[in-house]
Amino acid sequence: MNIFRLFGDLSHLAAIIILLLKIWKSRSCAGISGKSQILFAIVFTTRYLDLLTSFISLYNTSMKMIYIGCSYATVYLIYAKFRATYDGNHDSFRVEFLIVPVGGLAVLINHDFSLLEILWTFSIYLESVAILPQLFMISKTGEAETITTHYLFCQGLYRALYLINWIWRFYFEGFFDMIAIVAGVVQTILYCDFFYLYVTKVLKGKKLSLPA
């Protein structure tokens, strides 16, 4: 464990908690892409199946349980409890255009052709594009609530910190995982446009609104 991975995990945890609390307290999921949240639930489910097969540490196991629990709770709030506030018209990204290519790629490019490894690889590839429905929705509505931008910032920051963690681990441990690194770079690049808007607008107290 290093400081970058620790703060990456904490940033990811913060994002998940911010979103869950935002929906719960405001009793509304307006502006939130339910499709992205379903993709994240799939990402955690397919990646953390090793909860059933191996124990790494209390930290590792508890964080995985929290991620899975919160992501399913968020999906439940969006599609069940507060479904009346779900903005399905703007959440129109065709996720099948993500899942099918990612699934095919996971079968073709992986470290080991075993079920757990292919599911893990699928999860890594899917995570790198899972935020697209959310970013697409914001581009369609032309704006985002400030709390939603904080959620997105933490979500984007987490994988950016993981990139530094992988540089650290390569230099000090000789460890690297090309699949995770390439997917992590793609994932972080997808947030660059948002990061720019976040720094130039939200951090200056303005509302995040895109030129219509």
């Binding site: 090793d50 540490s57 470290h111 080991d112 993981y162 690297f176 090309m178 995770a180």
Partner: peptide, 10 residues
Amino acid sequence: CPIGSRKDEL
């Protein structure tokens, strides 16, 4: 070689 199979990250 990538030691990708060592899954200790979240």
